[in-house]
Design a protein around this nucleic acid. Structure first.
Lengths: 347, 347
DNA sequence: CTGTTAGCGCCTTCAT
DNA sequence: ATGAAGGCGCTAACAG
């Protein structure tokens, strides 16, 4: 071999010439389209192999000239985390525009199965693909499955509907997230005994229920010195959570740990500060926001469990793009990790 | 109905027609090339704005038709972490091949400034860009600067040379990584008193020195109950580290914490297990490997501080590509976080 | 079954 | 300072 680059610089035309066929035939073989004799297929494949030919992605994209329309279906009353995802979608728009891909965002009540399902049914068919913050409910599953049947790509985002026919889930393993919190609280307490409280938004949300499951597992299995209280629900609302926390602190002088499973962390942190017991209670919550960042630096929160909203926004679009172009997905790149953030590794 | 895509689908030709100029002129304006009257520039820019025109990335790439050659300069005696980066480079090769981009990997003694500098000087000019695991040394800096002067793009990887003219650093903030470890060890010990030992590969390596600095800061400032021993150096070698650890354990019956700053974690873990004190000593090290993963699950290690090798390999290539095409870098996407990995959030 | 041919949208000489 | 025209490598419609 001469120029080490030559191998990768062969074009489809080269292959055609070398194989003694037309470019159209090479193209057919390349994409497994019918209408080519087996013998010819083999000959072409050999030449491709021999020349180390790789189709030029940009040329293919240009020639295909398709454009894609995707839509993100997001919660209507966005908390900071969801708002950040939306913000990142906007940032990716420029990049996508240069690829003739358009992404819309619609907001709906993703917590009401009927409303969500209707939204999906209505807007779904207008798009090539959807990224949905899903509710795991039969009605929603049905809507997703129907769309998939119509040829619309569906990926779930942040919250999954595992039993649906969605093509992919972009988000974290919430049981593992709960377990992670359990271990952190237990370890940070270093043998101290007492009660651990859990505040959830709503336990009918799959991700909240899963996180609760995870934390319970770990606390009961590994930390006999700790006593997990029955979870309370605060609808992800700061005021509710503040009141709930106040009550928990009052009723349990021996409260040593606190886990906020959903949003509304500000309310809890405020109540903790007001009680003067912020430093005595190990407090872990989700999602890195200006508020939780502040709480970490103040020592009110001991850790934040976080999933990178930018990564999730990009990942969802990349996955949709790859799926609709029939390109492979780099699973490793799309994996969303459970980030543990403490004061010292704040991004 | 009119194509809802129309707005984003305007082409350079459309702009030319609307602005009453030729496509060549639009192209000139688009890329700020000289030879266009100010008035014309304004007119074209206005039309671009008005039509919401975005150049089609694929078309541009095709027309430009350039190809790129990059090279990763990696340590010769690769530890697992470095080997994983190399592995990921191979995975990206297919993707890159479709973009007429070739990446080589050369191995050299990156710990010897002269050898590294010579390698850089020798192979650098053959490439459009280099990703280098740098040693922060005057000789190396000079070599990097010279290459940059020749028009070769240089990014540093994992280990930086901040005062050189390298275009970018792909890697973590090592001081913060050290601080993170310090806090974790301190918190996990939950008030227990005793000594904390630090094993480094070599303190003349910038990243090792920085991690030491970080951990010292935190331990001395926030954990008066802990006593940081003078660091020992084990050259990232399992056998050395095992012997060192054995000695540390012997000499300090009150050793409660252990931080391995570099590689060779297996040796330390082995010594810990052999001593029977694995559960009594909080042990934190770097990089997720099959071994450290096992140690986490066994409870021998309490946390692993890790930087995602796949992310780093992709990031370095993306940055090199973006730089050489004069495209913007998505800083947020290329940020390498300090991952805290415990038993429960293992990927 | 296979080949011909006209683009896709942009970039780049080469003229003017 | 500006325009005309050819081509990058692949795809797809249309012939045969």
């Amino acid at each position: 071999m001469s120029d080490p680059f030559e191998a990768t610089t062969a074009t489809l035309k080269d292959v055609a010439r070398e194989a003694g066929v037309s470019t159209a035939t090479v193209d057919r073989v390349l994409h497994g389209r019918p209408g080519v004799r087996d013998a010819t297929i083999r000959r072409v494949k050999d030449t491709i192999e021999r020349l180390g030919f790789r189709p030029h992605a940009a040329a293919a994209e240009l020639a295909r000239g398709r454009s894609h329309r995707f839509c993100f279906v997001m919660p209507k009353n966005q908390n900071v985390f969801m708002a950040e995802i939306v913000e990142h979608i906007s940032k990716v728009r420029v990049w996508l525009a240069a690829r003739r891909t358009l992404v819309d965002v619609v907001e709906t009540d993703v917590f009401d199965a009927d409303v969500l399902a209707e939204t999906l049914e209505e807007i779904g068919p207008r798009y090539d693909g959807l990224a949905v913050v899903a509710l795991d409910h039969p009605r929603v599953r049905a809507a997703i499955d129907e769309l998939v049947g119509l040829g619309v790509l569906v990926v779930t985002l942040v919250s999954d509907a595992p039993s649906s026919r969605r093509a992919y889930y972009v988000g974290i393993d919430n049981i593992a997230a709960g377990r992670t919190t359990g271990t952190l609280i237990g370890r940070f307490l270093g043998g101290r005994s007492g009660k651990v409280a859990v505040v959830a938004g709503s336990l009918s949300l799959r991700d909240h229920a899963e996180r609760l499951f995870g934390v319970s597992q770990v606390i009961s299995a590994d930390f006999p010195n700790l006593d997990l209280l029955a979870p309370v629900e605060g609808r992800d609302d700061d005021d509710h959570n503040r009141a709930l926390t106040r009550r928990l602190l009052d009723e349990h002088p021996d409260l040593v740990g606190l886990y906020n499973i959903g949003a509304g962390t500000t309310g809890i942190g405020t109540a903790l500060i007001e009680s003067g017991r912020a430093k005595d209670v190990v407090f872990v919550g989700h999602d890195l926001t200006p508020q939780t960042r502040r709480f970490l630096l103040l020592g009110v929160m001991d850790a934040v469990i976080s999933q990178n909203p930018g990564h999730e926004a990009r990942s969802a679009t990349r996955v949709l793009l790859a799926l609709s172009r029939n390109e492979p997905i780099v699973a490793e790149q799309e994996y969303i990790g459970i980030d543990i953030v403490i004061r010292d590794n704040l991004p």
